[in-house]
Design a protein around this nucleic acid. Sequence first.
DNA 1: ATCGACCCTGTACCATGCTACAGGGTCAAG
DNA 2: CTTGACCCTGTAGCATGGTACAGGGTCGAT
Lengths: 132, 132
Amino acid sequence: MKPLTIGQVAQKSGVNIETVRFYEREALLPKADRSASGYRQFDESTIDRLTFIQRAKELGFTLNEIKELLALRVEPSSRCADVKSRAEAKIADIDDKIRTLRRMKNALVKLTGECDGRGSTSECPILDALNP
Amino acid sequence: MKPLTIGQVAQKSGVNIETVRFYEREALLPKADRSASGYRQFDESTIDRLTFIQRAKELGFTLNEIKELLALRVEPSSRCADVKSRAEAKIADIDDKIRTLRRMKNALVKLTGECDGRGSTSECPILDALNP
DNA sequence: ATCGACCCTGTACCATGCTACAGGGTCAAG
DNA sequence: CTTGACCCTGTAGCATGGTACAGGGTCGAT
């Protein structure tokens, strides 16, 4: 399949073209191949990668954490145990995030329920979510 | 119960003292009462609020979004439908975050499983998580 | 061959969310 | 009544994550 220009990946992923260059500089994207005239040549997978970065950012991961997530893969060498323990640490982080989000959600659901009944049960209902 | 100084709430919540002042300026905390000599006087609930802000930040909410979350409560007036729809929008945001986190987690769990078996099934396994 | 739309590098600038003084007042233990 | 630990209000500076040119080259349709 023929390569995509930076403008095409930017447009297809909804990311600013300057941001694509920025991510390459910051190693969130691999250094792109270049055409004879120096144009960057991307393939389709870059779009997925950019989409992933956007979503991970929305979830509160920093660019450095995202870089680590993207780097996690089983290597042919002996690094397996290392990869596994880093992945398990990320899984624990994610579980924490999910737990906290669920508690926030419960508080908000409770709040909307109170709308149909008597008044509020708390000055700031969402705070109840995080004080078990 | 006697009021807490800014140093006490900062220390108990693990937030920098300057950040507490910053949050007050930015209206993430209500304007604190003042003693005769101008010292801020906080109560215990401020610590919960600061804790909430820290966690919500880790989940990718901006300070403005957090301010909105903290403001959600059932008012005695007729604003109930408004509060309810704002809360429902936040719930939808949270559900999205949870869904994406679950997919990331599944990808990582799969990755750690591959460690015990044959090699990787993908160049960048975590990307599979978000391309259904 | 030329015009508009695109690409390159480099550097500067921006918003968000803090964090760190400077310069000065307050409080309480000894 | 002093001394050290705290508080106050500015205002300045920093890290992160972009975003925006300037100045110049490339590509392809006409």
